[in-house]
Write a protein that binds this DNA or RNA. Structure first.
Lengths: 233, 233
DNA sequence: GCGGACAATATACATGTGTATACACGATCG
DNA sequence: CGATCGTGTATACACATGTATATTGTCCGC
């Protein structure tokens, strides 16, 4: 089957898993005759198909069905079309990433600097994880249907919000104030995702150097924000 | 036909145009029997096809031929396949953008701050231009064949290099020094392109606000770089 | 045990694709 | 003028796709 750490896509526990919210939103089926294939199976199959050169919009319904080992028409029992599946995948990837980064932040809530570091490292770690979930968010941001793009945008905005709150908290702990924290959060988020898109196509050996670079960039942004705040007052 | 300002795709001056380098790289044809369709025509047709929801990798050879008004097979006279055409398009978009931004920089080489402003404004202007050339660079960065992605990466790197040189020059004119100018240039470039990708899907009314936001972000980065340089010494 | 319901399949069809082959035109040059 | 060659086209084929329709198989409640 398909096992992802963090219990995002379980081996197959009859009833899907947590993370859900959208995965099988109606678990109130009487008995479920014989649920051969599940939404999660299709999501997993899709993840296997998208590689460095394949984006979601180029994956066909039949391919997914083939990969999942079902007849093409069985696909319709789970999703109306590839677009619906894609959106589900994006939401899954977003919530998963936020969970993981959130845990990383809690783990290292000491100085502003080390939090940045740990978050960036965790991000890159996810990038290399074999579930490819992050890949979805990284490269599907610009293409696809409207619903598609809105889904990506929504996830990134969630991410921004959580980051903004964290940044404010951290700055306060250091007795400082940030200039335009919302913009800082947005800049950091977009920059990290853009750099992640670069990293994904590079050999993993360069990851440490990239982590270094990204961390420096983020320090520039945050330091600059502090400086501008001082100027503004 | 298809006219783009800056003479990127000329109305049809027998021999293509400048910008070339890659457009018709062998102009040493004896007389050119009867050149009904040109590479530029196909590029223009492709630009018409890619919209907010279409990426280059989802445009088919036949579609381009149809849009250009030629038989599918005639396509092969100009490009081996869509991949080759896509790369040509990317190179065209990149060199065009660099020219335009370069001119904008020269036009306003006063203070560091105004240069940023003018560059960002020019960038957004291009975003709304009707030739959609910038769109190619914005949304094709993450998907497609290897040659494809390398082409995008190459153009962005060119962009970074020119920006870095400019940043150093500007800082020197202000009697300051930048911390890690290469990283600053990279951060700015990637951030601007990422924000551009957001802008493209928003109504143009929000452009002014976005320009404001982006400018602030860039000021944070540059201010931060100055600050870090001071700390480092 | 059995009828019915429902998941999953098999078959089929219209459409779009990339490309191979063969052909038609028109300019060029001997 | 006529041969030739470059350019564009028409036709064709094999294949993949999304989806409609009909069919099978299996489990449930009776």
């Amino acid at each position: 089957m398909y096992i992802v750490r963090q219990g995002m896509i379980q081996p197959q526990p009859a009833v899907p898993s947590m993370t859900s919210t959208l995965v099988s939103p109606t678990p109130d089926m009487p008995h479920a005759r014989r649920q051969g294939i599940s939404r999660d199976d299709l999501l997993a199959a899709t993840l296997k198909l998208i590689g460095p050169n394949r984006s979601l919009s180029t994956v066909s319904l039949r391919e997914v069905a083939r990969e999942a080992g079902i007849a093409p028409n069985s696909f319709y029992r789970q999703f109306r079309d590839m677009d619906e599946l894609s959106i589900a995948l994006i939401d899954l990837a977003g919530s998963s990433l936020r969970t993981i980064i959130g845990q990383a932040r809690e783990r290292a809530t000491s100085t502003e600097r080390s939090v940045i570091r740990v978050s960036v490292e965790t991000f890159m770690e996810q990038l290399r994880a074999d579930d490819k979930l992050l890949h979805v968010l990284l490269r599907e941001g610009a293409v696809g249907s409207d619903g598609f793009k809105h889904a990506v945008e929504r996830e990134l905005t969630y991410f921004e919000d959580e980051l903004r709150i964290d940044l404010i908290r951290l700055a306060a702990a250091d007795g400082a104030t940030l200039y335009e924290p919302a913009l800082v959060a947005k800049a950091i988020t977009r920059l990290v995702f853009a750099m992640g898109a670069i990293a994904i196509d590079q050999p993993p050996e360069r990851d440490p150097a990239l982590i270094e670079d990204i961390s420096t960039m983020l320090r520039m942004i945050i330091t600059g924000s502090h400086a501008l705040e001082r100027v503004a007052n």
